[in-house]
Amino acid sequence: MRVSLNALLFGFLLVTPVLAHHGGGVEYFMDQTKGPVTGTVTAFAFTFPHPYIEFDVKTDSGAIEKWSAVFQPTPTNLRAAGWTRNSVKPGDTLTVSGPPHKSAATVIFARRVEVNGKLLEQGGGGN
């Protein structure tokens, strides 16, 4: 059965909305999941274009690695899901899992986020 390229592309976009937009498929291995990674928050950038959390992760050897978890939704979309700029604070314990960045080993796409043991839902949106 021959399938047109446009039909394939349209079907692909239907099931992978993130890849229809920018960040996902370009910077991250969207078909992989890294983590959960746990660390201590050092900063929360509740800003456009995409919020992100910076956190320190202690390795097995005791060294500190600087990690970042980047969100898909914009601050507006996160706010609609109940977030504020104070939802994450320095000193909080962050546990995050999601697709790994393709070239930055300590950057992760924040698909699932727990702060101090509580899952924070993200709603939808973002590009």
Binding site: E27, T47, F48, P49, S103
Partner: peptide, 20 residues
């Protein structure tokens, strides 16, 4: 109004973070 500006001190660190 949302007042969504592009703030260099916010945008540029993000672009560096994702290595764009």
């Amino acid at each position: 109004d949302e007042q969504i500006y592009c703030v260099p001190s916010e945008e540029f660190p993000f672009q560096r973070l994702i290595q764009s």
